Amino acid sequence: MEFSPFNKVVKLCIQGMSAEEQGKPEEAVRFFMQGWKEADNDHEKFLAAYYMARHQRTTADTLKWLETALSHAIKLNDDTVKSAFPALYTRIAECYEKLSDPVKSRENLELARLYKDNPSDKGPFYHGTKANLQIGDVLTAGGLSNYKSEFKMNHIYFTALVNGAGLAAALAKGEGRERVYIVEPTGNFENDPNLTDKKFPGNPTRSYRSENPLKIIGEVTDWVKPDPEELQRFRDKLENSKGDIIN
């Protein structure tokens, strides 16, 4: 399942996180539990269980929800959730340490180290923009941010989710048509630290960045355009954001 901010369970998790930020833990739990009850697949169950684990009163119950989240993540076996494994295994290790089980704690810490860094994603990869480009053109770092116009970016950004690139294209500055290009990294790349292990576990949007150029090798035209109302909410959120960009 492709991660989408418009998914019903993702929306409920976002509402739960908002309640957390407002100091309303009981309300947050209601949103997360509703997400768990409405989850129809392993990806949705993974997310809902992950957040339920944050609101348990005992270490044993926290561990139960974390291992439930892990079991659904393992069933998926895709790069959307693999990036969450280091943090997930680390939290499980901490639970076993508190429960006086150092053997299982060490086992999970070793698994966390095994999955850390070095994205295994093989693509295909996409870049969303309003620029009119051609196959063979090269995108390079050094441009101005779409979200903070005075900010010069040290990396070029891309994603393995076509609709995520479509959202980026819709949010991009400019008057041109929204375009989603298929791109090929020409060097090493890393998880986008602005999105990885932030509100959502791991790198669910499969968002990456590189100091090396991206080569355009094609264009996609059948991506799903975001609803205008949802898009406006994203624009409003970006305009009101006070967070710093990790450059």
Rank of each mutant, 00 (worst) to 15 (best):
M1A: 11
M1W: 06
E2F: 08
E2T: 06
P5V: 05
F6W: 13
K11M: 07
K11C: 03
C13L: 15
C13D: 03
I14S: 11
Q15W: 10
Q15K: 14
G16K: 08
G16N: 09
M17P: 00
E20G: 02
E21Q: 12
Q22G: 12
G23N: 08
E27D: 13
A28S: 11
V29D: 05
F31I: 08
F32L: 05
M33I: 04
G35Q: 10
K37N: 15
E38Y: 09
D42S: 15
H43Y: 15
H43W: 15
E44Y: 10
K45G: 03
F46C: 06
L47P: 00
L47C: 06
A48W: 07
Y51A: 08
R57F: 07
A60F: 05
D61E: 14
E67M: 13
L70G: 03
N77G: 01
D78H: 00
F85W: 07
A87L: 07
L88H: 10
T90M: 13
A93Q: 11
L99H: 02
S100Q: 12
S100H: 14
D101W: 01
P102H: 12
N108P: 05
A112R: 10
P119G: 02
K122L: 11
F125I: 01
H127K: 08
G128E: 02
T129Q: 06
A131R: 14
A131N: 05
L144K: 14
S145H: 02
S145D: 06
S145Q: 04
Y147N: 10
K148W: 02
S149M: 06
K152T: 12
M153T: 06
M153R: 15
H155W: 05
L161G: 01
N163K: 12
N163M: 01
G164T: 04
A168R: 04
K173S: 03
G176R: 06
R177H: 12
R179P: 01
V183F: 03
T186A: 02
N188S: 14
N194E: 07
N194H: 04
N203V: 03
T205Y: 09
T205P: 00
Y208E: 05
R209G: 00
E211T: 07
E211W: 02
K215T: 05
G218M: 10
V220E: 12
T221C: 01
T221H: 03
V224E: 12
V224W: 04
K225G: 06
K225W: 03
P226L: 15
P226N: 14
P226R: 13
D227L: 10
P228Y: 13
P228T: 13
E230L: 15
Q232R: 09
R233N: 13
K237Y: 09
L238H: 10
K242P: 01
D244L: 11
I246R: 01
N247K: 07
